[in-house]
Deep mutational scan, measured.
Amino acid sequence: MASQGTKRSYEQMETDGERQNATEIRASVGKMIDGIGRFYIQMCTELKLSDYEGRLIQNSLTIERMVLSAFDERRNKYLEEHPSAGKDPKKTGGPIYKRVDRKWMRELVLYDKEEIRRIWRQANNGDDATAGLTHMMIWHSNLNDTTYQRTRALVRTGMDPRMCSLMQGSTLPRRSGAAGAAVKGVGTMVMELIRMIKRGINDRNFWRGENGRKTRSAYERMCNILKGKFQTAAQRAMMDQVRESRNPGNAEIEDLIFLARSALILRGSVAHKSCLPACVYGPAVASGYDFEKEGYSLVGIDPFKLLQNSQVYSLIRPNENPAHKSQLVWMACNSAAFEDLRVLSFIRGTKVSPRGKLSTRGVQIASNENMDAMESSTLELRSRYWAIRTRSGGNTNQQRASAGQISVQPAFSVQRNLPFDKPTIMAAFTGNTEGRTSDMRAEIIRMMEGAKPEEMSFQGRGVFELSDERAANPIVPSFDMSNEGSYFFGDNAEEYDN
């Protein structure tokens, strides 16, 4: 993207840094990872977990959730003011799984939030270390993106479920800051804005008074975040219109849905970061690795190297396929839920299948599930090659597409044709070009129609051997075009429920 120079890199967003050079960025990201790792080690000690239990991804998720809940100030305040039966607002906890007599047992633990905050700050040299908290939120978000298709949420806001490739980060909490905003897809931002506008339509006082002023500035800020994701002048001009509207209503909703559809071809720039579970960072720190000293990046080879040398386990339900569970977590670790499966298959070195073909449910185990038949197995999170994460949407291309997802959002900077089903997408653009945004709409449609099938995206960008740390010898991959490109292809993934 041309304006790259004016933006802070995501590592800076990730670490609240002012302008830093590459070495400083690597050190501050490393410091953040160190903090998460030290916190995780301490929690495993508190909970008396064995090494194996500490490497269980379900335990990692519970521990991450506990610290996120302990620092969720708004919710904590709300819980104190609106006490609900049987919930102690000062405590947080969740299921911890232990191996007892050759069987997995679930144990519900409860801790004072104050105590968890103390352990977290102690692991982070006394700081609140917001960057580390956001990092864990993005890992949870990436896992949700890989596990669930947001059909219901899309339909509720009037969008087409086939636009799911635009929904990265749709389950990120509001408090995820600049680093969170960077990884949100165009569809996620559109959905947040539509929800806001709908509230304004239904509630006369939404934009009024002292609160209304705050609401208005939040609305304009979200519009600017979305505008910054678009790469064409016409899309940005249309966002200006939406932002400046005196009284946002149905016309703005129409414009936003139009823009979301246009992003299936004229893709937005959305950041991709490899955020790993805390149970990967903990053992690495415990083994003596100093992330701050060595430096770390979320968008280069580092996460690949770390996963190459990590042992992570997962509980497996009786009829689940461990290899499929591994694929789910591998995609989440690489922030690749909406990437082209052919690119992923090449990088991973084994075939990556669409969601609907995987015999696996989510990673988390519900409290009512029976533990008797639970097994555990090693997650295979290694890769054959590594590639640089991208934040450009890439230019655009036609490809055989599917009944489910009709476009992709690249996660890796790797040369390819970008699949999208042009006739299906263009069919949504018939007729409606009147109104105050008509010239911009016409211009956007013209650009979409001009998108050429034979153009290559990320020209000359390749993948790298894991021994090639400096990215000196790019390998331009070859793809098996007979395979499906979309992950949520004609899909039956479970729906995400809060």
Rank of each mutant, 00 (worst) to 15 (best):
G17W: 02
E80N: 11
S274V: 05
Q58S: 05
Q58R: 11
I425Q: 00
T171D: 13
E18Q: 11
M13L: 04
D16Q: 10
V329F: 08
M456E: 00
I119R: 01
R436P: 05
I445W: 04
D302N: 15
E434H: 12
A181M: 14
L56A: 09
T15V: 08
S377E: 05
R246K: 15
E254K: 13
I265N: 02
C164T: 07
N319D: 02
D160W: 12
K198G: 03
G435D: 08
A336W: 00
K103F: 00
T151H: 05
G462Y: 09
R355C: 10
A263C: 15
E469A: 14
V285N: 09
A451I: 06
A336S: 11
G169R: 02
A332V: 03
T147L: 03
R384D: 00
A337W: 12
C223A: 14
T130W: 06
L264C: 07
S407E: 06
N309W: 02
G462A: 11
S438Q: 06
R106G: 08
S326V: 10
Q399R: 15
I445S: 06
E24H: 07
F420R: 00
F291Q: 05
Q241I: 11
P161A: 15
N247V: 11
N432K: 13
L264A: 11
P322T: 15
G180V: 05
N59F: 07
A286F: 07
E64C: 11
I301M: 11
R117C: 13
E494Y: 02
E244A: 10
A70Q: 03
D302L: 07
F206V: 12
V299A: 07
R243Y: 05
E114K: 14
A332T: 13
I96W: 08
Q459K: 14
Q4N: 15
R117Y: 06
M13K: 11
A471Y: 13
G249N: 07
A27Q: 14
R117V: 13
C333P: 02
S262T: 08
L143N: 04
F39P: 10
M440P: 02
Y52K: 03
E320R: 07
G177F: 12
I33V: 14
D255S: 07
S478W: 13
G185Q: 10
G460F: 01
F489N: 02
V280H: 07
L166R: 00
L259A: 14
A427W: 00
Y385N: 12
R384I: 01
Y281W: 11
A278N: 13
V476G: 11
L306R: 14
E449S: 11
F230Q: 09
M374R: 02
V109Q: 15
I301A: 12
R382D: 02
L193D: 00
N498Q: 07
F412E: 00
M447T: 12
S345G: 14
A278Y: 05
S482M: 02
G158C: 13
R162T: 02
T424P: 03
N211S: 10
D240T: 13
L307T: 10
Y148T: 08
D468V: 02
I116H: 01
Y97D: 07
L344V: 06
P283I: 12
V408G: 00
S9E: 00
N202K: 10
K227Q: 13
K48H: 12
V270E: 06
I475V: 15
Q122V: 15
G185M: 04
R384L: 05
G460A: 15
M136D: 00
L264V: 06
K77W: 00
G185P: 02
R19H: 10
N334C: 15
D497Y: 15
Q415W: 13
R65N: 13
S217L: 14
L276M: 14
D290S: 09
D290F: 09
A493W: 09
E115N: 08
E434F: 00
K91L: 01
C333Q: 06
V343S: 12
F304Q: 04
R38C: 08
V67C: 08
V329A: 08
I201E: 03
T188M: 03
G295W: 12
T146P: 01
R261E: 09
G132F: 03
A284H: 11
S50M: 08
M66W: 08
I388F: 01
L49S: 06
D497P: 00
A403W: 01
S245F: 01
S353Y: 08
G282M: 08
D340T: 10
S50E: 12
A131E: 06
K214G: 02
M481S: 02
V476D: 00
G86K: 14
N417Q: 13
H324D: 12
K214R: 15
R348L: 07
A233W: 03
E53Y: 14
L466I: 14
M66L: 08
M136H: 02
Q409F: 00
Y313L: 12
M196S: 10
M32D: 05
G169D: 05
D203R: 01
M481I: 07
R213D: 09
V343L: 15
Y111K: 00
C44D: 03
T433E: 11
H272D: 09
Y10T: 08
E192A: 03
I194T: 11
N202I: 12
M331H: 05
A271L: 07
M238R: 02
S262M: 09
M222E: 04
I406S: 13
S262Y: 12
R19E: 01
K273Y: 04
S165D: 14
G177D: 05
F71R: 12
M440Y: 15
M371C: 15
L133I: 15
L172H: 05
N224K: 14
G435I: 06
K305D: 02
L193V: 14
G295M: 10
A471R: 00
M239G: 07
D88Q: 05
S345D: 13
Q364V: 11
G394E: 12
A336D: 11
G35H: 13
Q398W: 03
S314P: 03
G490W: 02
T62R: 06
M448S: 05
Y385D: 10
A178G: 06
M374N: 08
S345Q: 10
E81K: 07
V363T: 01
Y385I: 08
S170E: 03
P95D: 08
A22E: 03
K198C: 03
D72G: 10
L256N: 10
F304E: 06
K98V: 09
Q399Y: 03
R446H: 05
L341Q: 08
T45I: 08
M32R: 05
M238G: 13
F464I: 09
T146E: 04
P453T: 11
N432D: 01
T6F: 00
D255M: 08
R121E: 02
G490F: 02
I33K: 02
E443Q: 13
K91Y: 01
M191H: 09
I475N: 01
S482K: 06
N59T: 12
E484G: 03
L315G: 03
K293Y: 12
R74A: 12
P410L: 00
H135V: 07
E80A: 08
I444R: 04
G212K: 12
V414H: 01
E449K: 10
G485C: 13
Y281A: 12
A234W: 05
Q4S: 14
D203Y: 08
V183I: 15
A323F: 12
R216E: 09
N125H: 10
W120N: 10
N432S: 10
N309S: 14
M13T: 03
I406D: 04
S467W: 01
R75P: 01
K227V: 07
R221A: 02
K293A: 10
G158D: 03
P419C: 13
M167E: 02
I365G: 05
E484N: 12
M163W: 08
V363C: 14
A373S: 14
Y40F: 10
I265E: 00
Q409S: 13
E484V: 15
G485S: 10
G5Y: 07
T171S: 05
R74Y: 02
A373C: 13
E18M: 03
G450M: 09
M189F: 01
P410R: 00
I25N: 01
Q231R: 14
D302Y: 06
D421G: 00
L154C: 10
S326E: 08
G404R: 05
V183A: 11
R162F: 11
R470L: 01
Y487K: 12
G37L: 08
K422V: 07
K98F: 04
R317F: 05
I201D: 03
P83K: 03
N224F: 08
T62G: 10
H140Q: 15
E454F: 10
A179S: 12
A181F: 15
